[in-house]
Computed example of a mutant assay.
Amino acid sequence: MKREQQSAAVRKKILETARKLFVSQGYEKTTTRAIISRAKITTGTLYHFYKSKDEILLAISEDVFEEAVTLAESWAKSNSPALIFALEIGLQLQLCYQEKMIAETYTIAYRTEGISHMIDVKGAIRNSILFKTYNPGFTNEEFLIRTRSFRGMLQANIEEISVTESQTYQNVISTVLEIGLSIFGVPSKERTETIKKALSILKERRSEIDELINNIRHSG
């Protein structure tokens, strides 16, 4: 058990260090040598756990996916699947707007085949759970197709965030959520109410979002 705990601690240290470096200086500029140096581990230790920088990014992407789910569910304070979905996506967009390097890292993750596949598969499972009552006749394949379509649209908007300055980010978030909720069959009136509530919650939670970004910057 002690060895397992030690391994888990080393994995956590690697991912926290890499995440901080990706956010502070960008994924492309971060080398595995820099991760090794900052984490104070040996080259052999890094490659024992992760064979490449892409594998590290994949692990971080999985963690981010789970973190967004957990936060959205806690913030929603309800069983509304539409609101939980809106908060998951809204939070990710908010993070990208507030920290451009997060947007850049998201963009690279979406462009990386293994990671985009993971996002699509996990997202489809997640969306089938959230939206099954709206679409009782949908197969798993139909949820995957719609998830992939939404991911493509979300990816395009995050890529735009990474290269431009925008003062109308709430309009972008609203539009992305409108399209996403529509894709998964949420009725018009519920979409409008859900988006309004999600934006209100994101505004109320701004200090927590700031703290989350600060923790990413200073972890590792």
Rank of each mutant, 00 (worst) to 15 (best):
N140I: 13
I158H: 06
Q155A: 08
Y97S: 02
M153Y: 15
T168R: 12
N135P: 14
R111T: 06
L83W: 04
F143V: 12
M101L: 09
T112L: 07
S166F: 11
S116D: 04
G90N: 06
A156R: 15
F143C: 10
F143D: 04
L91P: 00
T175Y: 09
L144E: 00
I173T: 02
S116L: 00
G137N: 15
A82Y: 02
T112R: 05
T107N: 04
I115K: 00
D120C: 07
R111S: 15
S78C: 08
E160V: 08
F85P: 02
A124C: 10
N127Q: 10
Q94M: 05
A76I: 05
Q155H: 05
A86F: 02
Q94R: 05
T133F: 09
N127E: 02
N140P: 04
T139C: 11
K100F: 11
M101E: 08
R126T: 01
F150W: 01
K122R: 15
I119D: 03
E99C: 05
Q155G: 05
S166L: 07
S78Q: 11
N140Q: 13
I158Y: 06
L154D: 12
E159A: 08
T133D: 14
E99Y: 09
M153S: 12
V121M: 07
Q167E: 15
R151Y: 13
H117N: 02
S78P: 14
I119Y: 07
I145M: 06
F131S: 07
K77Y: 07
I89F: 10
Y134W: 03
S149I: 15
I125H: 11
A86M: 04
S162H: 03
I89T: 14
Y97M: 06
N79L: 01
T112Y: 03
R148Q: 13
E142D: 04
L83D: 02
G137V: 09
L144V: 00
L144F: 11
I161A: 01
S78K: 02
L95C: 00
T107Q: 03
E159G: 03
G152Y: 15
K132I: 00
I125M: 15
E113F: 05
Q94Y: 08
L83T: 03
E165D: 15
K122G: 01
A109R: 03
E113I: 01
Q98S: 03
T168M: 10
Y134C: 06
E160Y: 12
I115S: 02
F138N: 07
N127R: 09
K132E: 06
G90F: 06
A82C: 09
N157L: 05
R146T: 02
E104H: 11
C96Q: 08
G114N: 11
K77I: 04
Q94I: 06
I89Y: 10
I119L: 13
R111L: 13
M153V: 15
N79C: 05
P81Y: 08
I119P: 00
E159P: 08
I84A: 00
F131D: 01
I108C: 04
S166A: 13
Q167I: 07
T175L: 13
R126D: 07
A86H: 00
A156G: 09
N157C: 04
R146L: 14
Q167S: 14
I119K: 06
I108V: 14
L87M: 10
S149E: 13
S174N: 05
Q98C: 00
A82V: 08
Q98L: 01
E113S: 04
S162K: 08
A109H: 02
Y110F: 15
Y134V: 07
S78V: 11
L154G: 10
T147Q: 13
Q92R: 01
Q170M: 09
S166I: 11
